[in-house]
């Protein structure tokens, strides 16, 4: 029984160890600014097309789906409110994070994993750099900066997608829709919508790096690490969003 529990507990301990060192390194020199900028480009600019597409279509779908339910109450005019609130509070952050996790947690796990199995991580330590400082911390900082920005873009594009549906299919006027959107959003929604991506950024980067750094067993191991990173990161995003929502709902 205890033997079964040992590996997951050890892994959890290792994960927190890595997270602690990665965060501590934010306040310690040397800072690898070049690496942070490079990662911001890969994670942020690289994810932009897919984030825009996901955001746009999820907003449009929300518009379509909700209009049917709203018709029953004769409240099609409220489409803007529904789209805006669901996107800003929940769908924007979560979908963006899941998409970025699929793209970048896997990327980090496979990159660091290949470095691990070809002894580049060991070489790094042998040649005077802390791999956590050089590899993990820049990825974490970069994700924390770009994920909230990507979420804002996804939110906006999604609301715009909802607008196109409202305007062309539901015959709402632009003023009706945008006014409804603007009126319905409160500071609580916006805060919640920006706290979430910030937390998800830690999950995406640390889980990706964690599985990369503990890769063993050659090329096959790299594949395994990549899959695990995406699965675990995605699940934790959904778990985390539940708890954050719980906190904000009771505020």
């Amino acid at each position: 029984m205890f033997d079964l529990l040992k590996p997951p507990i050890l892994a959890t301990q290792e994960f927190y160890g890595l997270a602690f060192r990665a965060i501590r390194n934010v306040f310690r020199s040397p800072h690898y600014v070049d690496d942070i900028v490079l990662q911001m480009d890969t994670i942020g600019v690289g994810s932009l097309p897919i984030v825009i597409l996901t955001g746009f279509f999820s907003g449009a779908v929300m518009g379509l789906q909700m209009s049917r339910a709203l018709q029953t109450y004769g409240a099609v005019g409220q489409t803007g409110q529904i789209v805006a609130i669901t996107l800003v509070r929940e769908l924007g952050p979560v979908l963006t994070a899941v998409v970025v996790a699929g793209r970048n947690s896997s990327g980090m796990a496979s990159e660091l994993g290949s470095m691990k199995v070809t002894e580049q991580i060991d070489a790094m330590r042998a040649l005077g750099t802390d791999p956590v400082q050089k590899l993990v911390t820049p990825r974490m900082i970069a994700t924390c900066i770009v994920l909230p920005l990507l979420t804002i873009i996804a939110d906006f594009v999604g609301i715009f997608g909802g607008f196109l549906i409202a305007y062309f299919l539901l015959n709402l006027t632009p003023a009706q829709y945008w006014n409804n959107v603007y009126q319905s959003l409160e500071y609580n929604d916006i805060t919640q919508g920006l706290v979430k991506p910030f937390v998800f950024a830690f999950i995406i980067s640390l889980v990706g790096c964690f599985y990369g750094m503990r890769t063993t067993g050659g090329t096959q191991g790299v594949g395994r690490a990549t899959t695990q990173a995406v699965v675990v990161a995605s699940v934790w995003i959904f778990v985390a969003t539940f708890f954050i929502t719980r906190i904000f709902v009771s505020l």
């Binding site: 470095m115 070809t118 002894e119 580049q120 060991d122 070489a123 790094m124 042998a126 040649l127 005077g128």
Partner: peptide, 17 residues
């Protein structure tokens, strides 16, 4: 890290970045 600067290590497959 400081001590390792006085040791050279050649890794099995080179260990190049």
């Amino acid at each position: 890290f400081d001590l390792r600067s006085r040791i050279g290590m050649v890794f099995q497959e080179g260990g190049l970045f």
